[in-house]
């Protein structure tokens, strides 16, 4: 029998201490880790429960928000300041999973959830470089309809499954980290790494490092923002393509814009190139299309997911049109 120790941390330093020197995992709501343990993808020897750590949502002095890593997804989505000032974040969260799962899942856990690539989960029957480095990837020549078109590598084509992270990427969120050697911050856009030849490494976190909070900087344009998710059914499914967008107009010109894509890459995909193409230009369908094409120029579709290139282009354009027409969603 595989032994599994369980302890509950009282604060961040206690959690870090408890996780030292063991094959330990921090446990949030369990909505991904419990499943991964059941499938023997993750085999920790100890769990350190961090759900009773800081979970508040506070306005910061600069007009932004600080969200405790133990805050539940529902608590973030329903918070009045998030709804009013960062609507794309509420929309992204409520587009993800189900209400039951959102009631359980923590913010920190959402950031660190692992891909839903079915080959990754199939420990008995499939090769997976993310699970067993160097073994090979059965997705690249397999059923890869849901896989990545941007940022993938010959070793791994899995996508990052989070909706919330796509909004956080567009909002320039900052992740607060703590370890035995101190505290530091990392931009959400820099938290996750591309697979390259090490798809088993997914973030810049050091062993034992703990996410303690996610900070949203104040934003002039986030109040006019939204999140659109395209999936195989109307609800309760992972994204084929999703777009988080915020835009600020000055007359007919685009003063500023934030864009991120989900469902298309191994990490929440900040669309820097599209933003660059749009900034200062006209808010027209032609310029939206040009920006989408700039972002998707490097897309490398697989046999089963070429549709995602067109879908991403159309969704990006549609969301920008919706925001610039002043529609609510």
């Amino acid at each position: 029998m595989i032994e599994l120790a369980y302890t509950r941390a009282t604060d961040a330093s206690d959690a870090i201490r408890r996780a030292e020197g063991e094959n330990a995992k921090y446990l949030g709501g369990g909505t991904n880790l419990v499943d991964l343990m059941r499938e023997t993808v993750e085999v920790p020897s100890a769990l350190v429960d961090v759900t009773r750590l800081w979970d508040e949502i506070q306005e910061t002095d600069d007009g932004g928000l600080m969200i405790g890593a133990a805050a539940r997804n529902t608590a973030v989505a329903e918070h009045p300041a998030v709804r009013a000032h960062y609507p794309m974040l509420t929309r992204a969260i409520v587009a993800g999973a189900s209400a039951q799962i959102r009631n359980m899942a923590t913010v920190g856990g959402n950031l660190l959830q692992r891909t839903r690539c079915t080959y990754f989960y199939d420990t008995d029957g499939s090769r997976c470089n993310k699970r067993s480095p160097g073994e090979g990837c059965d997705a690249i020549e397999g059923f890869n309809r849901s896989h990545a078109i941007l940022g993938a590598s010959p070793a791994c084509v899995a996508t990052h499954p989070s909706d919330m992270c796509v909004a956080l990427a567009a909002l320039d969120a900052v992740v607060h980290l703590r370890s035995a050697s101190g505290e530091r911050t990392v931009a959400l856009c820099d938290l996750h790494t591309l697979p390259g030849d090490r798809p088993d490494v997914e973030t810049v976190l050091a062993p034992g490092e703990l996410i303690t909070a996610v900070q949203l900087p104040p934003s002039n344009l986030a109040a006019r923002s939204t999140y659109r998710k395209v999936r195989d059914r109307a609800s309760y499914a992972f994204a084929l393509v999703s777009v988080a967008a915020a835009i600020e107009l000055n007359g007919g010109a685009i003063a500023d814009v934030r864009l991120a894509l989900g469902g298309v890459a191994p990490k929440p995909w900040r669309a820097w190139r599209a933003e660059e193409a749009l900034r200062g230009g006209p808010a027209t369908e032609a310029s939206f299309l040009e920006a989408a094409d700039a972002e998707l120029a490097d897309a490398r579709p697989l046999a089963g997911n070429a549709f995602k290139v067109d879908l991403a282009r159309r969704t990006l354009v549609a969301v920008l049109q919706q925001l610039t027409e002043g529609a609510r969603r």
Partner: peptide
């Protein structure tokens, strides 16, 4: 409401 299958 939560999912008891994913809850330890």
């Amino acid at each position: 409401r939560i999912l008891s299958c994913l809850a330890l």
